[in-house]
Design a protein around this nucleic acid. Structure first.
Length: 496
RNA sequence: GGCGUGUUCGUCCAGUGGUCAGGACGUCGGAUUCUCACUCCGGAAACACGGGUUCGACUCCCGUACGCGCUGCCA
């Protein structure tokens, strides 16, 4: 304990492998790592574990970067920003790994193992044991003669880690003390016979080399921690690192069942939520709630507030189910809290994607959008819902048709006198304002025809906006303009 | 099978020996209202089970049940 005075800076890492699209569980892990580091002013290392040639892809790598950028989760070292431990793409670190493996082998921390799976299984059975117990450490003390005999047979050895013969215990940052009994983890393969180092080797080695102090990862990795610690101890003995990091195992994010949200499940795709119209801050807020809470009586917070308050020790150890409804509600409150200009520009790409507006709207369209934005902002939970709300405003008159379901509800034969009266009173207006429209409609329909407001306005609403659900009617009509509004009423009348 | 881990309203999170067990989403009812939404008010809704320890357990211990994860020369 001579070095106690030096308090190493906190360094966490986010080390996904680029297979498929970014998973919300993965992002939750990234978020917690990020918040943990930011809370204490530590560093975030982003390392890409692209050593599975069969499954990794460049597109997937790009989408990982895109996902983190979209969410605003930044990193201090890694792709595109560099850092003192380059390279940060694991596939480029092969020679480093081979060198460490060589040193570990020279120190007898790694040993040559020739056993085939069949042989291991046969020995387990012969001993009356369950073959599922795995490797039996048979090759630990092979003599040179035995090894030579295997080689003479044409067999090439894998390299296995000599696991410690003692219990392995650590204090998990989220779960407390965890112990695995000595002998419960068979000596794991670290390097293939063909010389390719494997994930269980390369991941801890890179963590050690990069000075990672805290490993926060999914609960599914918990059973692999003993071999990780075993490797770390060996690495310390040969002087590659001076310490073993702290571990914290985050609860699983589950889907509708209580099983881990599958990579295949569309619900697990981060971009699915962006497409639905989640705001980065809304999604992040919800993700933060999966295993953590900022306070007993508050669920709504910004990323800044999150990392300011984040405490890994307060993370729950229960699996958390992804609840879309709650996520939407959280997003809705972030959406409503946005300054209207920001809401408008956030909604624009969705409107363009739905063909409601061109990608480059005209000045007039921009003005119209700005005018209606405050009316729709408070009735959305997701940006993708904006299209149906405002489509009527931007639709060309020739192509405008009320939605069939809404028309069936409100534009039946009963609607005829209502529409007629509405048209008459509106045509008489010389001033086209919300107030004037409201007065005209109220006097002609409610007072004049003696209808209940609900009955009176439904046909007008559907005729003008095309839907039974719309932004406020009078304001909508004012924005639409007198000619277009009355034109739509006339056409509805013709169809009624 | 073995090892590990988990178990508070339908869901997520609080609660760390004495609370009418709290909040949020959802749900139900109501108010407001031109629809929807927002907002507001109110209701229903949980400590897996069994033993201990204790004057007293949701809280501590043990066991059972059930869930989940891992058990690869994938990552």
């Amino acid at each position: 304990m001579s070095n106690v005075s030096e308090t190493p800076e906190v360094r966490v890492r986010f080390c996904p492998s680029p297979t498929g699209t970014p998973h919300v569980g993965l992002i939750r892990t990234a978020l917690f790592n990020w918040a943990f580091a930011r809370h204490v002013g530590g560093k975030v290392v982003f390392r890409v574990e692209d050593t599975d040639a069969a499954r990794d892809s460049e597109e997937s790598y790009e989408s990982l970067l895109e996902a983190l950028r979209w969410l605003g989760l930044d990193w201090d070292e890694g792709p595109e920003v560099g850092g003192p431990h380059e390279p940060y793409r694991q596939s480029l670190r092969r020679s480093v790994h081979e060198d460490i493996a060589k040193r570990l082998f020279a120190a007898d921390e790694l040993y040559e193992s020739f056993s085939t799976n069949d042989e291991v299984e046969a020995r387990r059975r012969a001993a009356g044991q369950d073959p599922k117990l795995g490797y039996d450490n048979f090759d630990r003390d092979l003599t040179d003669e035995q090894k030579a005999a295997f080689r003479a047979d044409g067999r090439e050895p894998v390299l296995r880690l000599r696991m410690p013969d003692s219990d392995i215990t650590w204090t998990d940052l989220v779960r407390g003390e965890i112990t695995f009994k000595a002998g419960s983890t068979p000596d794991p393969v670290m390097v293939r016979a063909n010389g390719v180092p494997l994930y269980p080797f390369v991941n801890p080695v890179d963590d050690a080399l990069m000075g990672i102090t805290h490993v926060l990862r999914g609960e599914d990795l918990l059973p692999s921690t003993p071999r990780q610690i075993g490797l770390y101890q060996a690495l310390q003995r040969i002087g590659v690192t001076g310490f073993t990091p702290e571990f914290g195992h985050l609860p699983t994010v589950t889907g509708d069942g209580n099983k881990k949200l599958s990579k295949r499940d569309p619900q697990s795709n981060l971009f699915h939520y962006r497409d639905l119209g989640f705001l980065p801050e809304g999604l992040l807020n919800y993700l933060a709630l999966l295993g953590w809470s900022i306070a007993e009586d508050n669920d709504i917070f910004s990323v800044e507030e999150m990392y300011a308050a984040f405490d890994i020790a307060k993370v729950s150890s229960n699996p958390a189910r992804f609840d879309l409804k709650k996520a939407e509600a959280i997003n809705g409150t972030h959406l409503r809290a946005l300054p209207v200009e920001q809401f408008t520009s956030a909604a624009l790409p969705y409107l363009a994607a739905d063909g409601v507006l061109p990608a480059e709207p005209s000045a007039e369209q921009v003005a119209q959008l700005a005018a209606i934005a405050p009316l729709v902002q408070e009735r959305l939970a997701l940006l993708s819902e904006a299209s149906d709300m405002v489509r009527f405003l931007f639709a060309a008159e020739e192509s405008f048709t009320p939605e069939p379901a809404s028309a069936a509800k409100a534009l039946g034969p009963d609607a005829e006198p209502v529409l007629r009266a509405a048209i008459d009173s509106l045509q008489a207006l010389d001033e086209w304002t919300t107030e004037a429209i409201q007065d005209a409609l109220k006097t002609s329909l409610v007072d004049g025809l003696g209808l209940k407001p609900k009955k009176a306005f439904a046909p007008v609403r559907v005729a003008v906006t095309g839907r039974t659900v719309s932004p406020p009617l009078y304001e909508s009509m004012e924005l639409l303009g007198k000619d277009r509004s009355i034109g739509r009423l006339l056409r509805a009348l013709g169809a009624a």
